[in-house]
């Protein structure tokens, strides 16, 4: 029994405790680190269709042998009482060709509002081949009460897009980004 009373195990227990607590703290941090890791992973692989590739004007040759249908889809979140739609529902483009399309948005409230458009692309693999030169999703959009306007998107498709993809959907969801409103939750206790 005396061997249990020597400081050996006592010190050792402390160090096990210490090491385990360190592991816990590291893993707690890892939970948060998954946020940037996930984003980096998505950008790397282009999955999830959410990366906004800002392209420069320099551009490869157009590939006139291929035609890709680009569809435009507009959604708005439950908290944003706006009208929001693409001017045309789809266009046919050659890879490499620069096109401009517009989306129409109309603030139906009689107060100024700020909207933020979140892009999403289907199929996800196509996301990294859609290059945007100009997009209303790059910035928050300020609308006066009742204001309506057209907002442009200028883009081209990287000619390296895999041959299996013939249709690509560019979707925007407009969220309320007005400073005084809460974005999620606090509606009714709909979940309860």
């Amino acid at each position: 029994m005396n061997n249990l009373a020597d400081p050996g195990p006592r010190k050792s227990n402390r160090s096990v405790l210490f090491q385990a607590v360190v592991v816990c703290l590291v893993m707690f941090g890892f939970g948060f680190a998954m946020v940037p890791l996930y984003r980096a992973f998505c950008n790397l692989t282009g999955i999830n269709g959410r990366m906004a590739v800002v392209a420069t004007e320099t551009l490869a040759q157009s590939d006139l042998t291929r035609v890709i249908t680009v569809q435009f889809v507009a959604n708005r979140n439950q908290y944003l009482p706006w009208e929001f739609k693409p001017e045309v529902s789809s266009v046919q483009v050659h890879p490499g060709e620069i096109r401009t399309v517009t989306f129409f948005a109309h603030n139906l409230r009689d107060v100024p509002m700020v909207g933020r458009a979140v892009p999403s692309i289907a199929p996800g693999e196509a996301a990294k081949y859609l290059r945007k030169l100009e997009c209303f999703c790059f910035n928050e959009q300020h609308f006066a009460s009742g204001e309506a306007r057209n907002m442009p998107v200028r883009f081209y498709i990287d000619p390296r897009i895999p041959p299996g993809i013939d249709t690509l959907t560019l979707s925007y969801t407009f969220f309320d980004a007005s400073p005084q409103t809460t974005m999620v939750g606090d509606k009714t206790a709909a979940g309860s």
Binding site: N48, G49, R50, V73, N77, V118, S120, I121, A122, P123, T169, S171, T173, F175
Partner: peptide, 14 residues
């Protein structure tokens, strides 16, 4: 139809 896909706010699935 053996299809099931999640509808996720802000994202588009196909």
């Amino acid at each position: 139809l053996a299809v099931k896909k999640d509808a996720i706010p802000g994202f588009i699935n196909e």
